[in-house]
Design a protein around this nucleic acid. Structure first.
Length: 875
RNA sequence: GGUCGAUUAGCUCAGCGGGAGAGCACUCGCUUCACACGCGAGGGGUCACUGGUUCGAUCCCAGUAUCGACCACCA
């Protein structure tokens, strides 16, 4: 309902001159929730548009990466809703196995307790308590950001339904032979006491020491180099390259392993690099992934010499030492025996660290559960290759294929207590059963103690959250989802796995479009992270500048796949834009802008111009959204709003509105329409300020209306008016040129200048003379007009200014000389091109035409400038 | 070590075969009746380097240098 009566007009002018986000945001968000604006309905007739949130860790806090991601998702969802879709943004959180367990363990440690003191059940209970007390802080922060998520559908990866989904797919994979148990070298964190997947290991170049050790005696000896002397206790061979002449005669013999009394064989293996070190490698199959491979190829035994704490278990003087204590102890013992051939030297090499606690990872042979990914990964790759799933920007496909085409089997077991427990039970005779949902294990069986990798449940997120494996109405309505938006850094962690499990479980890829954005960097270009201490807290930015300002900045900076630098000044700039919008609307309302009735059919050139520009802007925005070019979409709105609406249309409208009459009535209606459309276009990105202004403009507050359910603007082809665009462009050129002259001449803005304008007719500006005078601050000539400068300000228009001798002729002449030489240079360039026969023969016709136009323009510039020079009074 | 990407105005980035752009910063002038979180007018770049392809290269190709991201088991 639109209210435009006098009293309401009075009320609307009460908008303060500055936008104060804090007053608006919490009030609006609460109202949206209360009105159920975010809720999606399972039985709606509208087509679905679904996005699932990348579930933040339950331990997590909102950082700028989330803010970017959420701005994108929220804008897509809000826009879809305005376009008539049943839009659903699914919220929820991830239980974040290791992270959460660590947080609670640290809490226990403060009380001098370990998780083992509590026991498994009590510990898990403790984690749930932690979750309800401290977890999900980020959910509150999302409200601040304005996220239009359907709160009634919030899910957690550990809740009952999702746990059933996990068990269901595990059982299905197991029955299909896609889950197996094997003894492998895995990354072991001796502090977290669990296996880590490859991606939970961070590598850094660490300082180490390379020592050379002689194995064997006399002629029957061989020197190996190592940075990890302590692992020699587990050596079961020495390997050399098969083509290495130095050692060929020794292959097949054996040597004595120092300190142990064992003899180990010398073998030949292609893996060995003869150029490195001495060309001979000690082989420790139980504590090194490469060595394990070599061991497999040569059927070597694997000797575990450390326990899960990385303490030496091998019998002898080193038993009970930590691995880092054992290393120097063993080197010392070797030196005592004269085994150290070359002194140790510094050596920088890549060492793995636990992503969560930074402890040096110990490769360790152990029994783990794996998903056989080959067939799953192939299907995931084919879905993108076949175009069922599109990745934006397309360049990022390479990264995706790089993963799915080279995927190794996925180690899914974790020796943690917090997570989905593996539904495998072992019988008294060592037999194994996989227990599906609703089933119970046979009497006397015990369950595997391990839990699943956190990403196992995340991989089900797009459908488990909608009720899978039940065929719920929500699943039917909202799956598959429309878009997945996330940073390119987690393609492997999450995207590939959702693709694999989604296709496997439901037969359909879980989303149609994958939108990948970049990482947030600080002012020095470094990736922003808590550990680097260079993080900017988005909450702080929102406190100062408002949520809309942060969102607008992020949207305007987000190029597909591109990283993004955050600088507070730019957020301030976005705040300024919100304020500009605020004041433009405020002005419109004070000027009596209205939305009542249809747009008049008879409109002034100026009104037709802005409607034409509006329509073009809408088309542009739609086109950019279609390819997820948020920066370009947002930028188009920014320039339309600021450069065209504020800088020109409002200024042009002022004299018209002041004059009143029929023209003013038309302009008031157009002004209302333009502001209304502009606010709608902006709403997905800046929800708060647009809601506040739109309700004020339309008077829809009382009727319980909301811009959230207003229709997305439509580009009207019939509104395109190239004639009006040409006329206004000419007007802008003329006004700008006169302003430039005034500025160059140091004429004060308040100083009115009497002028005679001629040639307006030829420029199509005859009817706009008063507008030109108003914007350029020109007076009509007075009775005693005395022209002191004649200026050909555009091709057609000449202005005679009565400046009473204030003109600085020298300065103007210098400027014109400069313009003249620029125009001549341009003319030279175009003439040279047009004189080149190869160019004429080979260049496309449109390019040649364009050059001809440029030549003509240069010629006319020259003529104009010459005329101006001629018209200058003598210095 | 491998892969991919980047190198354009002081800063951060768009553009990606035919006239070098934006925001911020900077200079000058403005208490112009929506907004100084503002208005008007300006200055500023041999588009990293070297070759090649082309009638024409910031844009395509090759190499060099520097930076970055991701991945990684060379003892």
């Amino acid at each position: 309902m639109l209210v435009t009566n006098e009293a309401n007009t009075q009320a609307r002018t009460q908008l303060p001159p500055q936008y104060a986000p804090a007053d608006v945001e919490s009030r609006r968000y609460a109202q949206w929730v209360a009105d159920g604006r975010f809720a999606a309905s399972d039985d709606s007739d509208k087509p679905p548009y679904t996005i699932v949130i990348p579930p933040p860790n339950v331990t997590g806090q909102l950082h700028l990466g989330h803010a970017l991601d959420h701005t994108i998702i929220d804008a897509l969802t809000r826009r879809a809703r305005m376009r008539g879709y049943e839009a659903l943004w699914m919220p929820g959180m991830d239980h974040a196995g290791i992270s959460t367990q660590n947080v609670v363990e640290r809490q226990l440690a403060e009380q001098g307790l370990s998780r083992h003191d509590l026991g498994r059940e009590a510990f898990v209970e403790r984690v749930w308590e932690w979750k309800s007390e401290y977890g999900g802080k980020i959910l509150g922060q999302m409200r601040r950001l304005g996220d239009a998520v359907d709160w009634d559908r919030e899910r957690f990866t550990m809740d009952e339904g999702l746990s059933r989904a996990v068990q269901t797919i595990f059982k299905r994979l197991y029955d299909d032979g896609l889950i197996y148990r094997a003894e492998r070298i895995i990354n072991w964190c001796p502090r977290c006491m669990t296996a880590l997947s490859d991606i939970e290991v961070e590598h850094s170049d660490d300082d180490g020491e390379l020592v050379s050790v002689r194995y064997g005696e006399g002629d029957n000896s061989i020197v190996v180099a190592t940075t990890r002397a302590e692992t020699m206790l587990g050596d079961t061979a020495v390997a050399v390259h098969p083509d290495d002449e130095r050692y060929r005669h020794m292959v097949g013999t054996d040597v004595e392993l120092p300190l142990t009394g064992r003899r180990i064989p010398i073998i030949a293996d292609e893996h060995v690099d003869p150029e490195f070190g001495t060309g001979a490698v000690k082989v420790t199959p139980a504590h090194d992934p490469n060595d394990f491979e070599i061991g497999q190829r040569h059927d070597l035994p694997s000797l575990l010499i450390m326990d899960e704490h990385a303490t030496i278990t091998a019998h002898g003087p080193f038993q009970g030492l930590d691995r880092f204590e054992a290393r120097p102890a063993i080197v010392a013992a070797l030196r005592a025996e004269g085994r150290i051939v070359a002194e140790k030297r510094p050596y920088v090499h890549a060492v793995g660290h636990c992503e969560r606690c930074k402890t040096t990872v110990e490769p360790r042979l152990s029994k783990q559960w794996f998903v056989k990914v080959e067939s799953l990964a192939k299907a995931a790759g084919d879905a993108v290759r076949g175009g069922e799933v599109r990745i934006h920007p397309p360049e990022q496909e390479k990264r995706y294929f790089g993963w799915v085409d080279n995927l190794m089997d996925w180690c899914i077991s974790r020796q943690l207590w917090w997570g989905h427990r593996i539904p495998i039970w072992y019988g008294p005779d060592g037999d194994t059963v996989c227990v599906g949902p609703g089933e119970t294990a046979p009497e006397g069986y015990t369950q595997d103690p391990d839990v699943l990798d956190t990403w196992f449940s995340s991989a089900l997120w797009p459908f488990s959250t909608l009720g899978w494996p039940e065929r719920t109405e929500a699943l039917e309505k909202f799956y598959p989802t429309a878009v997945l938006s996330t940073g390119y850094d987690i393609i492997f962690f999450w995207v590939t796995r959702m693709m694999m499990f989604g296709i496997y479980a439901t037969g359909q890829p879980p989303f149609a479009d994958v939108v990948l954005h970049g990482l947030i960097r600080d002012e020095n270009g470094k990736k922003m992270s808590k550990s680097a201490g260079n993080g900017i807290d988005p909450i702080d930015l929102m406190d100062v500048y408002g949520s809309d300002a942060l969102r607008f900045f992020l949207a305007r900076s987000s190029t597909p796949g591109g990283d993004l630098v955050v600088n507070e000044e730019w957020v301030a700039g976005s705040r300024n834009f919100c304020n500009k919008l605020w004041n433009a609307t405020r002005f419109a309302m004070m000027s009596g802008a209205t939305l009542d009735g249809p747009l008049p059919t008879e409109l002034s050139t100026i009104d037709r111009w802005i409607l034409s520009r509006l329509s073009r802007t809408i088309s542009e925005v739609d086109a950019q959204y279609a390819t997820f070019e948020f920066a370009k979409a947002t930028d188009a709105i920014y320039h339309f709003a600021w450069d065209e609406v504020c800088d020109w249309y409002l200024e042009l409208a002022k004299p018209v509105l002041a004059a009143g009459g029929e023209a003013a009535a038309g302009t008031r209606r157009v002004l209302g329409h333009v502001l209304d459309s502009l606010l709608r276009l902006l709403h997905p990105v800046t929800p708060y300020v647009t809601e506040e202004l739109w309700l004020a403009l339309t008077g829809g507050e009382a009727a319980g209306d909301s811009i959230m359910v207003a229709e997305w603007p439509t580009a009207e082809a019939s509104a395109i008016d190239t004639g009006a665009e040409r006329t206004v462009a000419a007007l802008q050129n003329l006004v700008t040129e006169i302003r430039r002259f005034r500025s160059d001449q140091g004429l004060k803005p308040g100083q009115r200048v009497a002028t005679r304008l001629s040639g307006l007719d030829a420029a199509g500006l005859a009817e706009h003379e008063s507008l030109v005078r108003s914007l350029a601050r020109l007076d009509a000539p007075a009775a005693d007009f005395a022209a002191t400068a004649r200026l050909a300000v555009t091709d057609q228009v000449t202005a005679e200014l009565d400046t009473r001798g204030t003109i600085d002729v020298g300065a103007e002449r210098a400027r014109l000389d400069k313009a003249l030489s620029a125009a001549r240079k341009e003319l030279d360039g175009t003439e040279r091109k047009l004189g080149n026969e190869s160019f004429l023969a080979k260049a496309p016709a449109e390019v040649v035409d364009k050059i001809r136009e440029r030549k003509a323009a240069a010629e006319s510039d020259i003529a104009r400038v010459l005329a101006q020079l001629e018209s200058l009074p003598p210095a």
